[in-house]
Amino acid sequence: MTSAHTFTAPKVVGLSASATTPSRTLSLLRAGLHQLRPAAERVTEVDVRSLPSQALLHAEVDHPLIASALHEVHQADIVLVATPIYKAAYSGLLKVFLDLIPQQGLRGKIVLPLATGGSTAHLLALDYALKPVLSALGARHILDVVYATDSQFESHDLLGRQPNEEVLQRLRAALAPLSETPSGVLPLSRLRAPSPERVPC
Score class of each variant (00 low, 15 high):
T6A: 14
F7T: 07
T8K: 13
P10D: 06
S16H: 01
S18L: 00
S18K: 07
A19D: 14
T20V: 08
T20E: 13
T21A: 15
P22C: 12
P22H: 13
P22Y: 13
P22E: 09
A31S: 15
R37E: 15
P38M: 10
P38L: 05
A39M: 14
V43G: 09
T44G: 04
D47T: 13
R49L: 15
Q54T: 13
A55P: 04
L56H: 12
L57M: 15
L57E: 14
H58T: 12
V61C: 08
L65K: 11
I66P: 02
S68P: 03
S68D: 14
L70A: 06
H74V: 05
Q75M: 07
Q75Y: 05
A76S: 10
D77G: 02
D77N: 13
V79C: 11
V81E: 01
V81C: 03
Y86A: 03
A89G: 05
A89P: 01
K95P: 08
L98T: 09
L100K: 07
L100E: 07
I101Y: 08
P102K: 08
G105P: 00
G105C: 09
R107M: 11
G108E: 01
I110T: 02
L112R: 00
L112T: 00
P113R: 03
G118C: 02
A121C: 03
L124M: 14
A125C: 07
P132W: 10
L134P: 08
L137S: 12
R140M: 08
V145Q: 03
V146K: 00
F153L: 02
F153A: 01
E154R: 13
E154N: 08
S155Q: 13
S155M: 10
H156L: 01
L158Y: 07
Q169I: 01
Q169L: 11
Q169M: 09
Q169H: 02
R170T: 12
R170N: 05
L171D: 01
R172H: 15
A173V: 13
S179M: 11
P182I: 11
P182Y: 11
P194L: 14
S195V: 08
P196V: 11
P196K: 12
E197T: 03
R198Y: 08
V199D: 11
